[in-house]
Amino acid sequence: NQASVVANQLIPISTHLTLVMMRSEVVTPVGIPAEDIPRLVSMQVNRAVPLGTTLMPDMVKGYA
């Protein structure tokens, strides 16, 4: 099972991601792979992401 990136807190819209905001967890459905966490740092979310939500490629500007 592959770990995905999950929000560690509420991430407001247009926030630049930091390591503190993300954790890796095995979830269904599978989202952005956990090994991409370093790549996600300083990218922006294009919507509010609630605590515990799996980050999907379409939620992060410039990821997909």
Rank of each mutant, 00 (worst) to 15 (best):
E25G: 12
N46Y: 07
D36F: 10
T28M: 14
T28A: 14
P29W: 04
I13M: 13
L10N: 14
M21G: 00
G31E: 01
V49C: 06
T15Y: 11
D58R: 09
M22D: 01
E35K: 10
T18E: 10
S14V: 04
G31Q: 00
P50S: 10
G52E: 04
V45R: 00
S14N: 12
M21D: 04
L55S: 00
V45K: 00
A3M: 13
A7R: 01
R39H: 12
I32R: 00
K61T: 15
P57D: 05
Q9P: 00
Q44V: 15
M43T: 04
L19F: 10
G31N: 01
L17E: 00
A3D: 05
L40D: 01
T28E: 15
D36C: 08
S24K: 10
D36V: 08
A34G: 12
G31D: 01
Y63N: 03
D36H: 15
I13F: 13
Y63I: 04
V60K: 00
V30Y: 15
A34I: 06
A48I: 15
A7W: 03
V30Q: 13
R23Q: 05
A64G: 12
S4G: 04
Q2F: 13
G62N: 08
T53K: 10
M21C: 04
E25I: 07
H16M: 13
T28R: 13
S42R: 13
V26Q: 14
P57G: 07
V45G: 01
A64R: 05
M21F: 04
P57F: 07
V26H: 10
P33L: 08
D36E: 15
G31Y: 02
Q2W: 10
L19Q: 10
G31V: 02
M21Y: 05
V20P: 10
V45T: 10
M56D: 04
P33S: 10
V41E: 06
M56A: 08
P50H: 07
P12E: 09
A3F: 09
L51Y: 12
L10V: 12
R23W: 04
V26A: 09
L19T: 11
T53C: 07
G52F: 05
V41A: 05
E25V: 10
H16A: 13
V45W: 03
P38V: 07
A7P: 02
L55Y: 01
T15R: 06
S4K: 00
Q9K: 12
D58F: 13
D58S: 13
V41I: 12
P33M: 06
